[in-house]
Amino acid sequence: MRRLFAPWSLNLALLALLALASLLSLGFGAAPLTPGEVLAGLFGTGSEEQRLIVQQIRLPRVVLAWLVGAALGATGAALQGLLRNPLAEPGLLGISASAGLGAVLTLHFGVTAISLWLLPGAAMLFALLATLALYLLTRRGASNLTLILAGVALSALAGALTSLALNLAPNPANVQDIVLWLLGSISDRSFDDVLLALPFVVVGLMLLLATAPALEVLALGEAEAASLGVDLARLRGLIVLGAALAVGSTVAVSGTIGFVGLVVPHLLRRLVHHRPGALLVPSALGGALLVLVADIALRLLDTPRELMLGVVTALVGAPFFLALVLRSRGAPG
């Protein structure tokens, strides 16, 4: 079969770009480091100062960018494959907002001190509930419109409850906590944050990636996929759980970062010949790359205060979404 290029070469190219961007990100900051110094600091051969800067200060930020981007990219691709709709995305469908609500509630009640796990646990629980609700709302041959509207309604509900939590916040410190957290950022994070999200993102990604062969077949439609031996209930279960773990845990450490799951699969789909299963790994890598690049870009911009990552992805992603909707206007849903 003639192929533009094999999936592995796309993945390899994305990995190479990711390594390059990571090196850039590690070298960039108040004390600029050359790539050589970065590598020296990273592998412990450099000076004490270089080691501290690279390993303790900058590396967590880079690793978080990988985790957040990979989780959002892969979840977007998996949801698009499952719902057979290129507009599905954890942010647009209200999954991120719901995870955010779960986290905000723990901040509102000031109970995050009780346990380190309370905030991420609440975020994942709410992400799970939202994904489940979406699935139940749209499983019976619902149209694109129903899906998007259900997502809008879910986002609006989560947003309203988040506003309510702000409105009734007991003191200004809580309000500031919530607002800053809502904007979405991966700056000033430590390895504690990385370790908190890592296991859930890894398990979530594994669940999502395991659905690749079934997602390929689901391209035929549910009845024919079932006739080819695809267990639809298991497929949905894996994706709902995987999305909730991956998105919930990354929202817990980074706040809500939108549109990555929409933009990345869309840009890469053509390169994997529109195969929904083959899109998963490149979307995870591409998501990591996009978040990392966005995080570098916001530090390069000369703004009075450093922009928050969630603000940047929304500023870029929302017009992209609008363009996508305008372009697909009139195309059969």
């Binding site: 079969m1 057979r84 391209a219 009845a223 789909r269 195969r275």
Partner: peptide, 21 residues
Amino acid sequence: GQDDGVRWPTSVADLVALGRH
């Protein structure tokens, strides 16, 4: 099936290969 449920514009060869699942 009666309904053409195929949403993604894959190639004919990729579509046919799904029958081997």
